[in-house]
Amino acid sequence: MLVTYIEAIRQAMDEEMDRDKNVVLLGEDVGLLGGAFKVSAGLLDKYGPDRVVDMPISESLIIGSGVGLAVQGMRPILEMQFIDFISCGFDQIVNSAATLRYRHGGQTACPIVIRGPSGGGVHGGLYHSQNPEAWFFHVPGLKIVAPSTAYDAKGLMKAAVRDDDPVIYFENKFLYRRIKEEIPPEEFVVPIGKAALRKEGGDLSVITYGSPVHAVMKAARDMAKEVDIEVIDLRTLLPLDMNAIRASVRKTGKALIVHEARQTGGIGAEIAARIAQECFEDLDGPVMRLGAREAHTPFAPAMEDYVLPNQEKIIEAIRTLAAY
């Protein structure tokens, strides 16, 4: 079955709603409109307004009410129209959802999925380009996933819905309709917490996730004669699959972490620290990172390109590291 990344998400939500009547979808314009990006097209007709709910404009409400539903055994999928608006629901995520189980001494679970389009490269400007995963990476009790392929988009959505903990699911809107892939027609789930080895290589490990996976893969192919690159697609950011990361770095002795989110304080910082500590003896070069520069993601194309990582910057970083 040939599907786009966005269709894979739609299918996963549809199939999970079909499988389990406790799964509901809450968000702005998710019903009548089928979502700003049409990711929930047809779901209102199929499941009705009690399960596909057009919510008033309040992310705090969408997430907070999701927690209430979850305590009652429902499994809400909570859409942020753009993931940038997740900041408007911050308190409900970090204080309400993430501590729910902990502060009740394990009496309840919090099976919610918060999802929405993230990422730049589409001239979305300051509030339609964000990659805020690091804000949540700092919060115990949350899980974070960020698929880069249609297969993972579908499989991770299923895993997220079935997971008993709050999962933030970062969709990449740049990939929504840009990638199309053959996926199996039969049911599959991609487990949370498992990275994917996208390409084996012996010289250098690139650890990445989200849309840069595709740029890194292209760089790996283009540079094949120069350097033998191994590519790890994290898929899940919290918890990190340190086994996969360690195994790769122990083999290659060199690690570059690439993400579109800001480099400073990004997820790459944690990974770099863990590698430095846990793979010290195996390293043949500094652990390197490539993320966005120290600015917001601006609108004008040249500035956006300057701030965000791209193919060129990835190649340059790989060359620098390979030279050690």
């Binding site: 408007c88 400007g125 300051l126 509030y127 339609h128 609108f299 004008a300």
Partner: peptide
């Protein structure tokens, strides 16, 4: 906004016009 964002996200403060975020 000198191109840092478009539409009405950059105000004209000298004329008492505040630029909104998207939120």
């Amino acid at each position: 906004a000198k191109g840092k964002d478009s539409y009405l996200h950059g105000g004209d403060l000298g004329n008492g016009i505040f630029g909104a975020t998207s939120m």
